[in-house]
Design a protein around this nucleic acid. Structure first.
Lengths: 101, 101
DNA sequence: ACCACAAGTTACTTTATGTAACTAACTTTA
DNA sequence: TAAAGTTAGTTACATAAAGTAACTTGTGGT
């Protein structure tokens, strides 16, 4: 991979958001916490990828994972402040899509 | 692929923007037209992918391609109104990245 | 013991991306 | 006139990421 003059923070943000499903997962969590299966049902994503993406988002601090030791187990995902700070960006994409497609 | 209740326009926008390099290419064109090699030099992307992405963006009407029959040939890419309308989104990602990374 | 359930994980196939060498068309240089 | 240089790509091949479907784990109910 070539080197670049690109701002490393922007490059990192783009690497995250420019990954398939990432922004849509955040979009699904904007209105509040959701369970694994709820996100899976609301997007055409497979469990494999959803699991992978949620781990990445958790690692980057955009998403928080909470386990409820019920039976069967319940796991909720919700946005951290860092994740929620993307609301305007996601909203912007949404309104752009409505205006131009 | 599963079906979904997701708004088709948003899904389409995300499919475009959630593709590697797409948003960064648009970012490079925000300040005005650039040539193929200029974009290639300003991003760690290969000619193969850049060519592919520019074709997609042209097909979706975000980017316009202009050929100048000089020697050697010069080709410029610039944003259409539809492409430029993403400026706020890109700016939003940029400021989010500066604040949170 | 057997089934149900959520939340994953695994194994395998297909598609996307990365890398480097190559091409077309024309000009300048030797 | 042949060789070399220029931009804007394209091609062929290797590797990484994504899609699909079946399987696992932990627990409680019948």
């Amino acid at each position: 991979m070539k080197e670049t003059l690109l701002c490393p923070r922007l490059a990192k943000a783009m690497e995250l958001l420019g990954k398939r499903w990432t922004a849509l997962i955040i979009f699904q969590l904007i209105d509040g916490a959701k369970r694994f299966n709820e996100i899976e049902s609301s997007l055409p994503i497979s469990g494999r990828l959803l699991s992978e993406r949620l781990k990445e988002l958790e690692k980057e601090g955009l998403v928080e994972r909470t386990v409820f030791s019920e039976v069967p187990v319940r796991v909720e995902y919700n946005l951290t402040d860092k994740g929620y700070a993307l609301k305007d960006v996601i909203d912007g994409i949404e309104s752009w899509s409505k205006e131009w497609f």
